[in-house]
Structures are given as C-alpha cells and as structure tokens.
Amino acid sequence: MATKTRGARPARTGDQLGPKSANYHTHALTRGLVLLDLLASAPSPMTLTGMHEHTGLPKSTLVRLLAALTEMRFVVRVDERPAYRLGHKVMALADAYVSSVDFSAAAGSYLDELARETQQTANLGLLDGREVVHVCVRQPDRPLRFETSPGARDSTHSTGLGKMLLAGVAAGRLPAHLPAEPFPARTDRTITSLDEMSKEVRRTGRRGYAVDDTENSAGLRCLAVPVTVKEQPLAALSVSGPAGEFTPKRQKEYLELLHATAGRLADDHDVVAVLLGMHASMSEP
C-alpha cells in the first residue's frame, strides 16, 4: 500500500522538478536537492514509494540519488521498507549558514526603517531567564532619544519587551521568569506583584501588544509587539521614547508600523534562522 506523508509538499512530475534554468548537466544535482527539500518538509521518514509519488521520478533514479546522498551522509536509511530521513551532514550546512549571516545587518535594516519612521528607538529583544536581552537596536537621528545597545539586559517585569515576551510563557512558568516579590520598583508606576503582573500579561496577550507606561524609567514610554514564526513567539519588537510623544494617535501609528515590521522580520529567512538559534541558546530558570 502506498505511503502517504503528512505535511509533505504536493506531488510534482519529473519535468517540474527544480528551476527552469536547470539543464541536462545539472538535473542530477537539482533532483538531489529536491529530495533533500522534500525530506526536510516531511514530519517523519519517507519511503521510496512516497518519494516516487511526490516527485514523479522513477524509483530507479531515486535509488541512485539516495545512494549518493547516503554515502555523503546527507541522508540516512532508517529501515528496510526502505525509508529515509535527513542525515547529520545537513546540520553542518545549517550551522555554516547561520554563522555566515550578519544578523546586525539582516535585522538592522528593518529596525533602521522603523526608527526612521517613528523617530523613536527600535529594539529587538529575546527572553533569557529573568531578563530581556537586547539583540538588535537602532536609534533615530535626533538628540532626544532612548539610549541602549545590543547585548544590554533589562527587567522582564517593567519593560514593554519583557511583558510581550512573558505573554508567550505558560502561566505556570511565569514566576520563574520574574524576580522575587516584591519586584524592584523602577518608578512609582512599576508593577511589583505576581498577581498584578499575571493580569497585565493576560491583557497583553489578548490585545497583541505590550505597554511600558513610564514603568521602567520616568518619562519613558514603550510599545512592543511579538515576532511570531509558525505560531511561536521568538522575540519582541519595540519602540521607546519620550512619554509625551506617545499620544493616542501616535501610538496607533507606531503599532501599525511595529506589526508591519515584525511581519517582515518573521518573513526573512536569514533573520528567522539566527533568531531560532539564539532562542534555543537562551536559559530557562
């Protein structure tokens, strides 16, 4: 009986495989790459029959391609059906790809535009235990602005980035990402209890953005939104600046720009690859 693979791409005929620029001399390479792409999209090992159904390639051709990929350790045969999955050699390529990406340039171009359009400081942050790590920062070209730098750390309980990141944490894990009660009061508006913070995080999750209303620094406001990839919040994106400039009208404009920029970041494969690596390396308390 034919094997159906959930999540794999629709079948393509042999003539449809690969780019139109492929010629006789590149067909073997193109088909091998198509097989790797197909295996990467499958949630479980694929049988030879399954690959035949999805690619339209003759089984004899698939056997030859798989033999070469297996010998090079890009593919592993897992049983006698036979079925195959990606091999460890693919990880070396993935690691090399991620390490070659200039994250500051890749993500920074989006934050540059956001800082220019809002005239506020744009900041991309990740959750690391009980802290927020600023991984990319761009500032507007003006003397009055919020100052921070990549690599700087801040509190989760008093910042817009922190609240937005906490909104993606399971309720039972929330205390592990917060300081001991009472939380340090950065200003007279800082939330200092777990009960109130839990309510604030739920509000943040429902509305889809976080607000730091002079809670981390007197006179400073911040709005933050999630950067979500495949329903997983990987990071948070914010703009921060003088509280008096965050009028209701401006806040609406800022949020539109934040959501649009977060969407572009989530659609950029280079940015997402590095964020995934960073996210995996962050500590759990």
Rank of each mutant, 00 (worst) to 15 (best):
A2I: 10
A2V: 12
A8V: 10
R12E: 13
Q16V: 02
S21V: 12
A22G: 12
A22K: 09
A22H: 07
H27R: 15
T30W: 05
L35H: 04
D37K: 05
D37M: 06
S41I: 05
S41C: 06
P43W: 00
T47Q: 00
T49W: 10
G50S: 04
G50E: 01
G50L: 00
M51D: 02
G56I: 04
R64Y: 12
R64W: 11
T70D: 04
F74W: 08
R77P: 00
V78S: 00
R85P: 00
G87Y: 01
M91H: 15
S99G: 14
S100F: 13
L114F: 05
Q120K: 08
T121V: 11
L124K: 05
C136T: 08
D141E: 13
R142L: 10
L144D: 13
S149K: 14
G151V: 07
R153N: 08
T156C: 11
H157M: 09
L178M: 05
F183P: 04
P184M: 05
P184H: 06
P184V: 02
T190P: 12
L194A: 05
E196R: 08
S198L: 09
G205W: 07
Y209V: 02
A210S: 03
S217P: 13
A218K: 13
R221I: 11
R221G: 14
R221Q: 15
P226D: 10
T228K: 07
E231W: 11
P233C: 04
A235D: 02
L237H: 03
A243I: 09
E245L: 13
T247M: 04
L255I: 06
A260N: 09
T261D: 08
T261G: 09
A262C: 08
A266D: 03
D267F: 04
L275R: 01
M282I: 04
E284H: 11
E284S: 13
P285D: 07
